[in-house]
């Protein structure tokens, strides 16, 4: 407890966006608590501080519900990385990223990096069904309210947005295509940006599949952004840098 009361200034901000029920909270929970358990739909946004080596990374887990749409741009202000999350069993959730969430990132840093994350891969990919972390096998048994989908249905539907039809799988190509469109929306050059195959992930919060990979890749990628911010801060002496000299913490584990 006292540890928390210690002042920790976040060095960098990571925001998780995506439609409700895609598993944003579950992903973060899996990463920080090494567990999968029943969640409650997030209200507003929840702020977490993660120690990453000598750095403090703030993570905003936002609510996907339309009710909280307006707050998104506030959470995204100054973000160094945005995780755009969809549910691999729901075309709609991928479409929503473009329709509803992409514009929220307008307030993010201009050098913000974007990851496209298809969660619930355990429902479509046999590889994602194995527990990634043998010490903490998947908990909670059956997926809660997540839509159940026959695991063999690889053909992408003709129309991704047909309303009322049962949820259908989203392939990696669709995610990569979306990544391209995100870069274009941001006015970024595909050649000089991080490639889609590095920035598109399929994860499972339930089994832990690719979850550490996702967060750790992103954290490593935002390091330059942290360093740049610190140099800027050193020029303005008013800013508190007290935790600058903290010894590096463990790279992972409880914080």
């Amino acid at each position: 407890m006292p540890e928390i009361s210690k002042m920790k200034k976040p060095d960098v901000k990571v925001v998780i966006l995506g439609d409700m029920n895609v598993g944003k909270t579950s992903l973060l929970h899996r990463y920080t608590e090494r567990k999968f358990r029943d969640t409650i739909s997030t209200v507003g946004g929840a702020f977490y501080l993660k120690q990453w080596g000598p750095y403090n990374i703030s993570i905003w887990d936002t609510a996907g519900r339309e009710q909280f749409h307006g707050l998104g741009s506030m959470y995204c202000r100054g973000a160094a990385a945005v995780i755009l999350t969809y549910d691999v069993t729901s075309w709609q959730s991928l479409a929503e990223l473009e329709e509803r969430f992409l514009s929220l990132t307008d307030t993010a840093n201009h050098d913000c990096i974007y990851a496209i994350v298809g969660n619930k891969a355990d429902l479509t990919d046999p590889r994602a069904q194995l527990p990634a972390d043998p010490q903490s096998p998947a908990e909670g048994g059956e997926p809660g309210t997540g839509p159940r989908v026959p695991s063999a249905c690889p053909t992408p539907p003709a129309s991704p947005l047909s309303p009322g039809s049962p949820p259908q799988q989203v392939g990696r190509e669709e995610a990569a295509a979306l990544y391209g469109r995100v870069l274009r929306y941001k006015g970024l050059d595909e050649g000089s940006s991080l490639p889609a195959d590095r920035m598109c992930f399929e994860t499972s919060a339930r089994t832990g599949y690719n979850v550490d990979l996702l967060f750790e890749t992103l954290f490593d990628l935002v390091l330059p952004s942290i360093l740049r911010k610190r140099t800027e801060n050193q020029r303005s002496p008013t800013v508190d840098l007290e935790d600058y000299c903290e010894p590096p913490g463990r790279r992972r584990g409880c914080c």
């Binding site: 920080t32 608590e33 209200v43 946004g45 929840a46 702020f47 977490y48 501080l49 914080c255």
Partner: peptide, 8 residues
């Protein structure tokens, strides 16, 4: 869960 700070 635990360490989170909610803003809503």
């Amino acid at each position: 869960f635990q360490a989170g700070e909610i803003w809503t």
